[in-house]
Nucleic acid binder design. Structure first.
Lengths: 331, 331
DNA sequence: ATGCTAATATCACATATGTGACGCGGTACC
DNA sequence: GGTACCGCGTCACATATGTGATATTAGCAT
């Protein structure tokens, strides 16, 4: 609100003033000149410069950001890696107020992790979910050569909300200045036959072919817990259907493929009505990074790790502790 | 294993250090404490604090940004408004190195302009193009009530590049935390009949209905000049087809509707094969903001203004001057 | 021209800051 | 265990900076 004010004033006078402040501030902060030097080059008094700089800061012309590093808990990381035989883990330190806050920070951590691993020529597969959305937001734009982004699972229809749906692959591609391949198909179809038909379609076949060859897959991990079950929230399943899913032992899903607490893939219709990569192809991808936050996801994470649906995990302390507890460890 | 350990410990060390630097920097820059106070509360020497702050700046933990205001040329704005009877104009001052740079700055200017005009409850229509992409990037995220974003024209297929295509509506919706309505259809079809059929489809009909009721439309202005003709660059037209288009007098397009230098809509097949809002419906929208940069676009801008396809223009000085010249004025 | 007002300069001084020189204690490495 | 080095503290001092009080000027309306 305050920042908007800066640019809002259509007054030419004020525009001049702001340009002046910005120029002085640039000399001071970016060119490291002393106030004395600046005063001389503008032919004004030194104290005037001091006051101009104060004004520039007060009016938001100068913005100072402190980047706090993301601290991780090496101990929990080590334990997760050992307990589940995964390749890597990052566990964000600290406690957070809200689920949204956890997602934002885990997303940042995941973004740094991903940035460190991305190389020219890679194919990146991506599913969807709040954590991935936050991750992509936190990725710093960079140019790569021959990188491509591929959707791993189908997308919603015309009413796509920003946090879930086909936008993620595009957003990521935008950040990396590369192209993206979408799956123009619903995530879940009503009948297995419809799925079979769609899977034969040329561009779906092609995109899924690319998905299977992904060098890195970035996936969210969903829980079937009431109130947190994405497929219900996104309108794919009714609450009754969700009950059934839970009744058959499903604790979570990766790429809409459901499994139980021990990671056993569940052979029920829902798992066979998904337009997207299947659980076996997913397991064949070298690097599958699960990005997920919050204690509520613990059971789903446990299953995902036990079932080898992901082989690297980015999460927060609370979730990590609970996962290890579920695995019978004392924390 | 050993290597991992080494990597991890050095990492942990550094992480600690950065956290320390960030903490000190926060106290200094955000909480406005003096170095003396900080030294006391950490139990270190004052000169140590001074050195830590230097280190924090050198290592990028502290980032200082100076926001230069966007200066505009009121004189040229006034002349454009008078010459073409448009509602408003913003003409960015200054000369720029590259076309990309012009786009980035014009985009910023357009973003500020748009932010000032956006209100709760509005429907925003959007086409595509490099300038709009830059504009959306420059929009500061904000929450609105009942705002919706609607695509004005069809989108590309699976191979969408980030700067052009269906991503723009989604990106904008993300910035405004609102929903978006896409046109899941190609921008240009081969036959008029195919267009008629598609236009009957429910969700296309519905989205275009919303588009017609837009309170603000934000559009790029395309030129047919060789090397800059977006429809060729995006693969919709071959170079031969482009030649034909130019031969029939087309200098530019708004929402893929082509017109000549005097703004006369061209009654040729291409204009009737577009899935999107038509030129007459576009003219009925209250606020159509053209966002466009670069001298090369001058003829296209002239036509767009003469033909009333846009009624507000955001552009740069070089383009504005050339447009006025084309209109027979001395600059 | 005459005031009035707001912006800026001037001056003075107390602090805050940057930095070089030097020494001490801990650590990594041989 | 020795040694070289690194990080940091201490001290000292030169500058840089913030700020209050007061004078001066520019712009502006009458």
């Amino acid at each position: 609100m305050e920042r908007t004010k800066i640019y809002d004033t259509s007054n030419a006078r004020d525009e001049e003033r702001l340009a002046y402040l910005a120029q002085v501030a640039t000399m001071y902060y970016e060119e490291q000149k002393t106030q004395q030097e600046i005063a001389k080059s503008f032919g004004i008094s030194r104290s005037g410069v001091s006051r101009l700089i104060s004004e520039a800061r007060a009016r938001g012309v100068v913005e100072i950001i402190v980047h706090h590093p993301l601290k991780t808990n090496k101990n929990l990381e080590e334990r997760l890696i050992r307990a589940f035989g995964i390749k890597d883990a990052r566990v964000l330190r600290g406690r957070y107020e809200s689920y949204q806050e956890v997602l934002a920070w885990v997303g940042k951590l995941a973004a740094r992790y991903f940035e460190e691993r991305l190389r020219d020529g890679m194919t990146i597969g991506i599913s969807w979910g709040g954590a991935l959305y936050e991750m992509i937001r936190a990725i710093r734009p960079r140019e790569f050569r021959n990188v491509e982004v591929v959707q791993l699972i189908g997308a919603t229809g015309a009413e796509a909300t920003p946090t879930s749906g086909p936008i993620l692959a595009q957003l990521l591609a935008e950040r990396l200045h590369c192209r993206s391949y979408q799956l123009h198909a619903p995530l879940i179809v009503k009948e297995e036959r419809a799925r079979a038909a769609l899977m034969q379609e040329r561009h779906i076949k092609e995109t899924l072919g690319r998905a299977r060859r992904a060098d890195i897959a970035i996936v969210g991990i969903g829980t079937t817990s009431p109130g947190y079950y994405s497929l219900v929230r996104a309108g794919y399943l009714s609450e009754e259907e969700a009950q059934e899913v839970r009744a058959s032992g499903a604790v979570g899903d990766v790429c809409a493929q459901h499994y139980d607490l021990q990671g056993r893939w569940l052979d029920f219709p829902l798992n066979r009505c998904v337009i997207g990569i299947n659980h076996e192809d997913l397991r064949r991808i070298d690097n599958v990074i699960g990005v997920v936050g919050g204690e509520v996801k613990a059971a789903a994470i446990h299953g995902a790790l036990r079932g080898n649906y992901v082989n690297a995990l980015i999460t927060d302390e609370a979730a990590a502790r609970k996962v290890l507890q579920l695995d019978g460890q004392r924390i």
